[in-house]
Design a binder for these strands. Structure first.
Lengths: 216, 216
DNA sequence: ATAAAATTGGCACACCCGTACCACTTCATG
DNA sequence: CATGAAGTGGTACGGGTGTGCCAATTTTAT
């Protein structure tokens, strides 16, 4: 009953496409709709950028609008609330991150993952983890957090040629993620992390090929 | 030059005692000073409580003062800024947590650590991790984060009778902490975490005692 | 006793926040 | 063309924030 026009779209699924309002005819997308999609996407990437830059508290309606060069009201028009904006930003961040990690692994393998951590944009990672922890308090974000974990486990399992549900792959990911976070937050010397990663990889591969020594 | 009386104590160390202002004579602590200490401590525990309850953003001057049944100005009197308050709350939280974990390990060993996670106050842990990640952006908090990691590594190393610098102990802690955080955020079935923990413990202890089976 | 210093607590300033509101333009469709 | 919905953007409201200010009070030192 509110004169607010757009948000009466109760069927936006979790990873829903940017469809702020369904017109009466669901035919082809009109150019206006296309522009709307673009605007929405712009806002979202602005939110992601802010999230990575200043973390979490930096993602305000005003900041997002300004960063996207859009009026303040656009944020409330395309996103029903700040929470929704944050949730979608989180989801997008996770997808981006998974893609990045995937290409890294296929190009460089697992053994140099620590270097990827060192290479990657530090603040971006911090934003991701910040949101990850926050998901512990907000059930709406929890499934995104799970998606991240599952995605990473999948990457590692395939890289190691293990079945996806193999607990060793699962455990290896867990270890790597902790290494990752620790490195990110505490910024200890990189060698330390590298050593630990190789040790973890050794542990994850149970039978080191039957000892060539001791032929007797 | 500001007429603000108290905070001209530039020598408050990191884990400094609550000594808002040193009188001219540093003799025995007078009862008034004792009351001041108590007030300060009250504020701090109020901050810790709020931090664990609502996380991070819930720790405002007003909320802390109200929780401690003290006037608003007390917070700015005993803590020069909100950041300082948060830092001290973080430090206290870490110390408390370390003590809790220590007693658990000495009483129950490492193998049931997952149950401790399940038992412990979930929101408290979330607050801790929230602050831990935040330490990645605030160098003033970083050494507290390191202190947490080092403390936990120490606990595990002594529990396993390993030298403190043993990378296996280090790695085991890393894995456990990740398991911990994952469980906390994603709330997967507890069995899963238990399985992974035992697997991690197996990995950490390189030579499983010489197989009793296969006597031949 | 008296002055100086520390402490207390009430108050207000300036700022930023999420979000509602509402004229206005654009556009698809009758 | 007319019309009504979708989209746009400027503005305002109510509320919460950190922190500075200051008069009153208590404690300490002389």
């Amino acid at each position: 009953m509110t004169p607010h026009p757009a948000p009466e779209n109760p069927a936006t699924p979790d990873t829903g496409p940017p469809n702020p309002a369904t017109p009466t005819t669901t035919a082809t997308t009109t150019p206006a709709q296309a522009r709307g999609k673009r605007r929405r996407a712009t806002l979202l990437t602005a939110a992601v950028t802010l999230l990575t830059e200043g973390g979490f508290a930096a993602v305000t309606h005003r900041a997002v609008a300004q960063r996207a060069n859009l009026p303040l009201a656009a944020t409330t028009y395309y996103f029903t609330s700040r929470d929704q904006l944050l949730a979608e930003a989180f989801a997008q961040l996770v997808e981006t991150e998974l893609a990045t990690t995937r290409t890294w692994i296929t190009h460089h393998g697992l053994t140099t993952l620590t270097d990827q951590i060192a290479t990657a944009d530090r603040t971006r990672q911090l934003g991701l983890w910040e949101l990850y922890v926050h998901a512990g308090r907000d059930p709406a974000l929890q499934h995104i957090a799970r998606r991240w974990t599952d995605g990473c486990v999948h990457l590692i399992a395939t890289a190691l040629d293990l079945p996806e549900t193999n607990p060793r792959a699962r455990l290896l990911y867990t270890t790597i993620s902790a290494l990752w976070l620790e490195q990110l937050v505490e910024q200890r010397p990189l060698d330390e992390a590298r050593t630990l990663l190789t040790l973890a990889l050794e542990n994850a591969l149970p039978p080191p090929p039957p000892l060539p020594t001791l032929p007797q």
